[in-house]
């Protein structure tokens, strides 16, 4: 009998359960989580799944679709223009590394005691605030023969005849474009680094000063270990970002004259040539590359920073302490 009543009390009606504290909790949790999940699903995963599907079709935006299996992926590797556009990423990756080194350098200097550091920060950060399209137009004129850049170089004593055509010469035009993107994003990264550096405890610098550490040693042993997470993050973001470089080549050169990056070529194939299937395959392929790059970088940084896990204690000091402890324990 007792068992029976227990079952009955457990078997509340659905309405009762809904009104109970536990039921309300569940309802709230589900209600709160379902909206973001639904949005995420409808606007991210569903379109993405559709895009992966498109990659297996020969199709335009409108009209009939034809299933072609892996033909688009085969075409992707067979086409010289796509493969060579991927190589251009190397320029942007090199640019990204230079950019991070510069940003780190400037951030370190500006977070030490510098006069008018606020002004410098503002000036260096300013390019990031300008619209990317406007930057494109600025640099188009900047690199035009005999315009800004050439004039400045002529002040420095260069002869116009010895200067290359910055956007026409295919051996140099990609560097010109990379330069414009470094100019734009350097300030933003610098600000991120400054933010990270400010979280370092000031007393550490004082202690280091007392111990006679110079500025470089302070950077090497105090600043860099403290902000290594943000450095890693920035490197990963800029390397993956350089794989999908788009704005500079699209606006400045329209992707012509050997400056068409993977994204620009993809855009042309999708929108001018209306080969949506091939473009989707390219997008999936790019995603795979980005995954691989990110994983490789993660592994690399795990390896590179393996020694930096012991906070502010040097390895030798740690060894000594362990030894001492061992000796104590042995006695």
């Amino acid at each position: 009998m007792g068992v029976n009543t227990a079952v009955q009390t457990n078997k509340k009606t659905f309405g009762q359960w809904l009104r109970s504290r536990k039921g309300q909790q569940t309802v709230i949790i589900v209600a709160f989580i379902i909206i973001p999940l639904l949005l995420l699903f409808t606007f991210t995963y569903l379109p993405f799944a559709e895009m992966v599907k498109f990659g297996f079709y020969k199709m335009k935006y409108v009209g009939a679709r034809k299933f072609v299996g892996l033909d688009n992926y085969r075409a992707l590797f067979a086409r010289k223009d796509i493969v060579s556009s991927l190589k251009l990423c190397l320029y942007y990756m090199a640019g990204a590394l230079i950019q991070i080194a510069m940003a780190l350098y400037l951030a370190t200097i500006l977070s030490m005691k510098v006069k008018a550091s606020g002004l410098f920060k503002g000036l260096i950060f300013f390019p990031y605030l300008i619209n990317g399209i406007a930057i494109g137009f600025i640099f188009k004129f900047f690199y035009t023969r005999g315009f800004v850049f050439d004039t400045v170089l002529q002040w420095c004593g260069f002869q116009l005849n010895n200067l290359p055509y910055w956007l026409k010469d295919q051996s140099i035009n990609n560097w010109s474009l990379v330069g414009s993107s470094v100019w734009r994003y350097c300030g933003q990264q610098m600000v991120l680094f400054i933010g990270a550096i400010m979280s370092v405890d000031d007393t550490l610098y004082e202690a280091a000063d007392l111990d006679g550490a110079n500025k470089f040693q302070q950077f090497r042993y105090i600043i860099l270990p403290s902000i290594k997470t943000i450095v890693t993050l920035n490197i990963i973001l800029s390397i993956t970002g350089s794989l999908s470089a788009f704005e500079a080549p699209f606006v400045i050169t329209d992707g012509a004259n050997g400056t068409g990056t993977f994204f620009v070529v993809m855009n042309t194939i999708a929108h001018t040539n209306q080969k949506v299937g091939l473009a989707s395959a390219m997008a999936v392929f790019l995603l795979c590359i980005i995954f691989i790059c990110t994983i490789l970088q993660k592994l690399f940084f795990k390896f590179a920073f393996r020694n930096m896990n012991a906070d502010d204690e040097s390895r030798s000091a740690k060894k000594k302490r362990m030894k001492a402890a061992a000796a104590k324990g042995g006695r």
Partner: peptide, 8 residues
């Protein structure tokens, strides 16, 4: 023109 890449 001298430099086609920067025509306006």
């Amino acid at each position: 023109e001298d430099d086609f890449s920067t025509t306006d």
